[in-house]
Nucleic acid binder design. Sequence first.
DNA 1: AGAATGGATAGGCATTGCCTATAGGACATC
DNA 2: GATGTCCTATAGGCAATGCCTATCCATTCT
Lengths: 302, 302
Amino acid sequence: MEFHQLRYFCAIADSGGFSRAARLTHVSQPSLSQQIHKLEEELGARLFDRIGRTIRLTELGRAFLPRARALLFDLEAARSAVVEGSTSIAGPVCVGVIPTIAPYFLPPLLATFSRKYPQAHVTVVEEITPLLLDRMRSGNVDVAVVAVPLQTRGHEFQSFPLIEEKLYAALPKHHALAKRRNVTLGELHDEPFLLLRDGHCFRETAVAACKRARVRPKIIFESGQFSSILSMVCAGLGVSIIPAMALEKRPGCQFVPLADGRATRAIGAVTLHGRSLSRVQQAFLAHLTETNIATTSTNLEG
Amino acid sequence: MEFHQLRYFCAIADSGGFSRAARLTHVSQPSLSQQIHKLEEELGARLFDRIGRTIRLTELGRAFLPRARALLFDLEAARSAVVEGSTSIAGPVCVGVIPTIAPYFLPPLLATFSRKYPQAHVTVVEEITPLLLDRMRSGNVDVAVVAVPLQTRGHEFQSFPLIEEKLYAALPKHHALAKRRNVTLGELHDEPFLLLRDGHCFRETAVAACKRARVRPKIIFESGQFSSILSMVCAGLGVSIIPAMALEKRPGCQFVPLADGRATRAIGAVTLHGRSLSRVQQAFLAHLTETNIATTSTNLEG
DNA sequence: AGAATGGATAGGCATTGCCTATAGGACATC
DNA sequence: GATGTCCTATAGGCAATGCCTATCCATTCT
């Protein structure tokens, strides 16, 4: 039993004749005859009585007709549901962000996105990078905003660059180097360092910068967020390395750009390679890549 | 979009892989791949994400799956409804009978039929032959029990012989010929005749018998039923011609077989040629042809 | 690194759905 | 009652297509 047979059957039943139906459906009359015969054979019963040169539904045909119609209707419904679902920008998007980006980068983006697509339903997951990647693998998270490049083998993930931001030394207000236009990490050689806890990828970024300057930082405090670290810096307990977007106007704190040109953090949007994104998800990704330029220098003045 | 594509889609979604589904459905894996591609192309959206060497339903695929399942389920339901309807002996039968047969022939048949097939729903239409034929043409009546042969051109109807019954002269008890073993219509030449009204085909049967005997009957009364005529005969108002099945034990009436060997009435079951009969309808027809012998001589003793 | 697994691709074959032409009946009209 | 018309059924040919085997390519496990 095939859909076209059901279509033919309904057309014939509706029009009251093979020839009439043939004209309407733009199919030759013998084809209709043939397919109905096939259908009748498969069902083991006649659907039409051929009486003289007119036809009439048999009792069974009459019983079958509404079912055939329903099948065709449901088919169209299923098709248009898919088309609808694939064209309308609506539904859920789950975006993952690492903690060192989340509070600075995402809020304004989410606001504009929700305003642009009111039908969209964004949920945010804040986790460290490896957990986000796992959640992308299992399909829980659609897009992640993380520090790039990822050090995963192969092209398991696809990434879209967003911004690259400079790193700053965060110094107590009265520190000797606090008025400098820039500093090298070598100059901070003996300072006590306040860094993020292990697991936060920005810690690696900072440590890598130190390594380039052949400095082994003396780490005296670890935290999960920049604001705690900055409070400690203000209190004069040590120095730290902070990305541009985390700069905050603080009374006891001064930010000095690192002289090292490679001391930057690149941020990108990442998706699981091979995953098809829904329209909303695509729209969110587009929103990210399109509006990143604006946000780059927003809170540099802080 | 075709049923087999839906089947494949569901199989793959259920089994969680093309190869697994291929093994289950006894179709090669490339065929599945091919058909799913086709389906995806038609819908304009991916149904599965191919991630690494595993697959996962996309959001759309997840939405499509229950609809596909429902379509397949409804298809099977439609199929089995037809099969059920074409095999079970249940449902309506509409049987037509002419008035000169109905009261004598049908009641016992209906009783046994209903006992045999309790699921059957018999309705009876009592009309004169041409109206029954019309109702068969329009599909209102499924089988008719009438006097045969029909004088319709071509083989518009198909008829099944049931019984052939002798004709009797109905004479008042004290009539000169009432004790005879048989009579010819010629002997009733001058008698006043009581016959059925025009339209009843038995009238034609009787008139034809007269014509064969070169008798022009003097018709002094016409009625729609034999019982009225018999009452008149009892009252000595005239004579009549009656078929065997209409014989009734009446005090003032005597029945003498007509000598004319051709003075008979043949009764047959008739259906519209080319009409397919449901199982109940077929069963009723079979019941008619099978049980007619028993009824042939039932009320000859009356 | 090598083997195994899973999906995609290529090419060939058989099926089949559709077509045109025509047969065969039934109906209408002259 | 013969003829033309209007149906559906049948026959035969062609093109589309669904399925197959063989193979490729990437991933994953040992």
